[in-house]
Design a protein around this nucleic acid. Structure first.
Lengths: 348, 348
DNA sequence: AATTAGCACTCGATAGCGGTGAGTGCTAAT
DNA sequence: ATTAGCACTCACCGCTATCGAGTGCTAATT
């Protein structure tokens, strides 16, 4: 049985209608709403074929049809027409990005918010990985009589702070001295490159402050460990409640639960890191409790091998073409900003 | 009609049972479950009185009774027996606090999480206000060829970072010099105390770097403005879905919406700042979409006039005595930690 | 040969109905 | 003052009938 032009038109009509209304689509609806120049009976026959081929299915006998995952797949791969970004959307994206954002984590947080507002779905973003492992600046700042502040900046301008409590705090100058020395020795290092040799050198150079060194090293380790973890930003989880497919509170709850398992999400995003754009439709998704959902991921690059991923999660009935266009627009904007950020690094 | 001892016992039985089961309570249930030594008929008569007095009500004729807001009020004010904190709870609280938490925002975040786990309700915490207005340390750190990092620590160890992009970055020493000078001039200042006089002095002392000063001042302003905003930490919103009173997705949605309006929450918490412990039951709450909820707030102090508020939001049928005991325990713990934090300040 | 009008059929959704049971309020007996 | 007894209420459950949107099939039409 061939997938002729008319079948495709009908499939498209079903999908468009279902995306819009969330109700099974019947032959009469199509005949009336889309002027295909054929009667509902003919459409019925074609629908029967489409069902046999697996592109659509009936929730129960004698109801209208809804697209199957396979139907969506065809739609996404071949039928869907790419939407251009609307003007207001374009402007909105710009407005998010053009704000004075100089730290990556803020940027990510704002981006996630913007995407969930624009799409009405849930957004998950992983921060660019690979950037955060090397220390760009490592300094000490006096805080008060009981504590010193450790500031570490990694490539890509992740700024991390850690308050170090210590019994006796040296004078301001000495603190800066220690910081200066640390910076000289550790600049450009990744955490795992701090070996016994390096520690020995530090001990030697900072002999005068040898009691202070252990807590500082400990703080550096904690800080860098937390920096090395993949950071996620999520927004718009509550949008899920608006969709009729999650009207059953149990379904909503189990999806929420899945969205709280950071590991699951990280793997989800990591797996799609090699594609610029990836669409996982319903059962294609490996996560059990997300099989009613589709996940569209886009990867943004930040020079070299550093990349992060943006994922949009919605019902399989999501507006693929809108999400994809918004996502593409956003990736371009992000990459622009990140380029500016890392240009600073380059000249160091 | 007098609220005699027996009526109170019955009311208490109704409330306890309803808190536990979320089902209207009938006279027979009480007769069987609580050995009050009277028959269900007597209980029925008493219940009729209690209803007349307004402490309980019937969802519909010929159903059991549920407590009214007024009933809960009586319960909270006079009947409820204060629970002691269970051992595991005590230990759990300790374990949260005893971790190495040296920045207030982390502490608040962890506290919120812990409370929502312990109580199964939603937790909102406002960071202590008043602390964040004075700068304790203000420093500059070189980042790369295009940017400098501004680090501001305010009282109470709120650390704020701001990356300042500048066309031409001076040498490391000069950056530290500027930072040193800024710190000398601005230490102890609040944002609003930076007047033209002070700016003039800065311009004078940093004449050599006069082009750099404006972006730095701008950054200080942005940073301090964001520090002055009341920061909220929320956790456990999803717990709401587990309660039968929010089985209707519409109700859940409207509550979620209310919880997203930061202003509303801030006023809610601010209003109860003068009481150590405050319970707002259902309609006592001024927020429209939270009239099915009770909010228990506790205020924690941090020396002087600085205080923040913790709020627990749940259905009116919430376990008041448990929440109150957990909240009390938590406040004690937090105050201990905050005291340690600010002890550093004192000796500065 | 393809299309379509017509029709019987399916099945979810909705409404109506009687039975059940938990619960009440009232009355009369204790 | 208490309680046993009883009539009454009403949500809830299961059953049945009806309705209507939609299908699949057949026969007529183009």
């Amino acid at each position: 049985m061939a997938l002729n032009d008319r079948k495709i038109q009908i499939l498209q009509a079903i999908i468009n209608n279902y995306i819009e209304t969330a109700e099974p689509v019947g032959s009469r609806t199509i005949a009336k709403k889309y002027n295909l120049g054929i009667s509902s009976a003919t459409i019925r026959n074609e629908m029967s074929d489409l069902e046999e081929m697996g592109f659509i299915l009936q929730p129960h006998a004698s109801s209208g049809r809804i697209p199957s995952d396979m139907g969506y797949r065809l739609y996404v791969d071949h039928l869907m027409q790419k939407k251009e970004l609307g003007e207001e959307e374009q402007r909105y994206l710009q407005s998010i990005i053009s704000r004075d954002i100089s730290q990556i984590d803020f940027l990510m947080e704002e981006t996630a918010k913007a995407l969930s507002v624009l799409t009405n779905y849930t957004t998950i973003i992983s921060e660019p990985k690979g950037q955060r492992t090397r220390m760009k600046q490592i300094r000490l700042i006096p805080l008060d009589s009981a504590s010193v502040l450790l500031v570490i900046a990694t490539e890509g301008n992740f700024i991390k702070n850690h308050v170090i409590k210590m019994g006796c705090v040296p004078t301001e100058e000495k603190i800066f001295d220690i910081g200066f020395c640390l910076n000289r020795l550790l600049q450009g290092c990744a955490l795992r490159e701090i070996d016994t040799l390096l520690v020995a050198r530090m001990q030697e150079e900072l002999w005068e402050y040898r009691e202070l060194l252990p807590p500082i090293l400990k703080a550096i380790e904690t800080t860098m460990r937390s920096a090395e973890k993949v950071q996620l930003h999520m927004s718009g989880t509550k949008n899920i409640l608006a969709f009729p497919e999650f009207a059953d509170i149990q379904k909503a709850k189990s999806l929420f639960q899945a969205l709280e398992e950071k590991d699951v999400l990280v793997t989800l995003l990591e797996e799609s890191k090699n594609n610029d754009l990836q669409v996982l439709i319903g059962s294609e998704n490996t996560v059990q409790s997300m099989q009613d959902c589709s996940v569209i991921t886009a990867t943004y690059k930040m020079g070299d091998n550093t990349r992060g991923t943006i994922g949009i999660v919605g019902p399989t009935r999501m507006d693929y073409s809108q999400v994809i266009s918004v996502l593409n627009g956003m990736v371009q904007n992000i990459e622009k900003v990140l380029k500016n950020l890392s240009d600073g690094d380059k000249n160091t």
